[in-house]
Simulated scan of single mutants.
Amino acid sequence: MSNPWKEAEGRQPIVMRMIENSLLRDRVAHAYLFEGDPGTGKKETALLFAKSLFCREPLDGYQPCGACINCRRIQNGNHPDLHVIEPDGLSIKKEQIQFLQQEFKKTAVESGWKVYIINQADKMTASAANSLLKFLEEPSARTAAFLLTEQSSLVLPTILSRCQQLTFRPIDSSELKQRLIEEEINVPMASIVSKLTNHLDEALQLAQDEWFAQARLVVLKLYEGLKGGRLSAIVSLSEEFHSHFKEKQQVSLALDLFVLIHRDLLSIMTGEEKGLAFPDRLASFQQDALHLSAEALADRMAFILEAKRKLSRNMNQQLLMEQLLLKLQGGHAFV
């Protein structure tokens, strides 16, 4: 049986250690601000913290049991003393904060605690933020607030100063890959997208995008074309590459995929074959690595990164890719 607390400790050890200390020492702050990228577990952690405060039979004195009535009601989203505020449309409005204040004037129903979670706190309107500020300035006993944000710089400094701030670290590549596999993303796709982003939601979107799946295949075909000689590479480029990668951002992504191919080759050369971006191409890449020196591989990666820099300076995309292929094949330098 899974243990949500232990899982959270594995993903955010520093944050969970601070929460554990607060609970064990009975020094729960009246307001917390959780900051971090999407998919780093801010809301899940806030709910775990709330369960710890409400739990009737905590494990080791602080971990929620997950089975008592309070834990189950929080899990099901219907505990009367826990309120979650989400943006109404594009923002969190003053009326939502005022409703929260009215609710908190009532006596706690199930326990001595009252907790509220404000998701995407940076999306509060100015009037909502000012209304919340008054609420934070006069905290009630046994009340805990959790403000969640991806951008603390957009939250009023006066609100920040009244919160204990905890920063959630980004998900690392191997952890993200495992979480994608748990979401039924196949291993090759989970491997590649976990190298391109550390945002779970963004990774899921990319992994389920048919255009991206085709982009991966087009880049691999272009790479194979390079091995077949200049003509085949140019033909592959002209026939498929430019029809698929039309926008500047798309070409930049294609170059990122090219870099990842060459990083895999380098990993294979150094005997580090775990964590490849293209694990399904291992056998083929092993053969390719036999015919490349480390110096030649480093040159190739430098050429691709130089192409990315030139792309950022708005060089013509088609000309840039043609010159890159020539460079990779020992042709002329960039102009």
Rank of each mutant, 00 (worst) to 15 (best):
L320G: 07
V28I: 14
Q323D: 03
N198K: 08
F334Q: 13
F212R: 09
E110Q: 14
S52F: 12
V335Q: 12
M269T: 11
D280W: 11
K308D: 01
G331C: 07
L23P: 02
I74Q: 07
L290T: 12
L297E: 10
L325D: 03
L204Y: 03
Q98R: 09
Y62S: 00
L305C: 05
Q75P: 00
G36S: 12
L217T: 10
S127H: 01
T125A: 01
K94C: 00
L206R: 06
Q214N: 06
E138D: 10
P4K: 01
E210R: 12
E175M: 13
Q12N: 08
S284C: 02
N70P: 02
G89D: 09
L133D: 01
S312Q: 13
T107C: 02
M1T: 09
E57Q: 13
D209E: 11
T270H: 08
M189T: 15
L311W: 00
A333N: 15
I85P: 00
F104H: 06
L217D: 05
Q208L: 13
C71F: 07
H199S: 14
V251C: 01
H291W: 12
I117A: 07
L154G: 04
G271Y: 14
E86I: 00
S284A: 15
E272V: 14
T40W: 00
A302W: 03
R216Y: 10
L320T: 07
E322C: 09
Q151K: 15
L59Q: 14
G331E: 04
S284K: 11
Q178M: 13
A307I: 12
E110Y: 09
A126Y: 01
E150H: 08
G41H: 06
I159H: 04
F49W: 09
R230S: 08
R72K: 12
K106V: 03
